[in-house]
């Protein structure tokens, strides 16, 4: 029996009928054509499907669409503002933090949560903060650099104001 759900996705309100068993990731991909969120595993380990729900990173393959009823959802497609890349997107490009690009959206969304909790993380804190996301291409080396780049970019204006 389909259930009507309403949520805000990347700033836009959407209302749809879904089956209870529709996973949030399938809802985004199939119903909203937001295919930037990927499915990489079925045991909620790989993190490719990471999105933000009410500001927190979650694995959208381990959440039902109905659970997100009434929530605010942000996917990779909603990260850039006014056509400008988010500092993390920019960091991943500048520091070559991606190769095949498959894990990238989830990795970036996890990093958004990470920098939100800890705006100035050490290398070790970044590595630990990415424990929920697999990348098979980069060996994580440049992903760490990318996040450092973004942290610096986000913090610099703040520091400038502070001083």
């Amino acid at each position: 029996m389909p259930t009507k759900i309403t949520m805000t996705v990347n700033g836009q309100s959407v209302t749809k009928d879904v089956d209870a068993r529709t996973l949030l990731v399938h809802f985004l991909r199939d119903n909203l054509q937001l295919t930037g969120t990927h499915v990489g595993c079925d045991t909620s380990n790989c993190g490719a499907c990471t999105i933000l729900v009410d500001g927190h990173a979650v694995k959208s393959c381990t959440m039902l669409a109905v659970q997100a009823d009434g929530s605010e959802v942000t996917t990779i497609e909603g990260l850039s503002q006014n056509g400008e890349m988010h500092p993390l997107q920019e960091g991943f490009r500048e520091e070559h933090g991606l190769q095949c690009g498959f894990c990238t959206p989830g990795m970036i969304m996890a990093a958004v949560d990470l920098l939100d909790r800890n705006p100035d993380p050490s290398e070790q804190e970044i590595r630990e903060g990415l424990e929920g996301n697999f990348c098979r291409c980069t060996g994580y080396h440049n992903i760490v650099r990318s996040i450092q780049y973004a942290a610096k970019k986000i913090n610099e204006p703040k520091k400038a104001v502070a001083s």
Binding site: T35, G36, T37, H38, I76, Q89, G101, F102, P105
Partner: peptide, 11 residues
């Protein structure tokens, strides 16, 4: 990179 970073890759 741009398409991958903005969720516009096409797999």
């Amino acid at each position: 990179d741009k398409r991958f970073l903005t969720g516009k890759g096409r797999y």
